[in-house]
């Protein structure tokens, strides 16, 4: 992200940019490791079933945890790279100026919705915490398993705030802080 930071930006912006790049790095590691673990876990379960006539009792639960982790952490990554799916047919034909306004509104509304959802998810986690629900196999508190949900939603919301900021502060139409709309390979207009 740093290469895209506007010239002469303040220390605060540089600091934020640095923090975001560290978050991006951590998200990348989480996604890569989770997907590889999913494969290992599922393959291990097949081997245990066929080779040793017994299933790994935790395999299902672990996969479920990984899916939730990947979905909500990945949502933030996808927002950072402007990869979330949208129907751009109408905005694509708008001239640059209204498109920029539209993009700003879209990013702000999306962020607001995700913030609200993050708050609901915290309240959901609290209710899970209070009722002390445990997973059936590993007997881990359920709220721990889902603790990535509010975090992921919050990070995703922040990405959309950044996208709005990019549209307001910089020239051009931005899909996210790092990706301009209608960039090269068509990926951005998703």
């Amino acid at each position: 992200m740093s290469e895209n930071a506007p010239a002469g930006s303040s220390a605060a912006v540089r600091c934020l940019t640095y923090i975001d790049s560290r978050i991006a790095f951590v998200e990348r590691q989480i996604l890569a490791i989770s997907v590889m673990l999913m494969a290992l876990n599922t393959v291990g379960n097949v081997i245990a079933r066929i080779g040793f006539s017994s299933s790994l009792f935790f395999a299902e639960e672990f996969n479920r945890f990984l899916i939730v982790l990947v979905t909500f952490v990945g949502a933030s990554t996808a927002a950072r790279y402007g990869r979330h799916i949208r129907m751009s047919a109408i905005t694509d034909v708008l001239p640059a100026k209204p498109r920029k306004v539209m993009m700003t509104i879209i990013a702000l509304v999306t962020a607001a919705l995700l913030f609200a959802l993050a708050i609901f998810s915290i309240s959901y986690l609290l209710s899970l915490y209070q009722s002390n629900r445990l997973t059936p196999s590993l007997r881990i508190p359920v709220y721990l398993i889902y603790s990535f949900v509010p975090l992921g939603l919050l990070l995703t919301a922040i990405q959309y705030v950044f996208a709005a900021a990019a549209n307001i502060l910089r020239p051009g139409v931005h899909l996210s802080y790092t990706v301009k709309d209608m960039e090269s390979d068509g990926s951005s207009s998703m």
């Binding site: 990348r28 989480i30 996604l31 890569a32 490791i33 989770s34 997907v35 590889m36 899916i67 990947v70 979905t71 909500f72 952490v73 990945g74 949502a75 990554t77 996808a78 790279y81 990869r83 979330h84 799916i85």
Partner: peptide
Amino acid sequence: EVPSIAFSTGMITAVVFILVG
């Protein structure tokens, strides 16, 4: 190269699954 393939798998999964959710 495998971890970076896994990373892109994770991101695509998220894009689809957030909508499934």
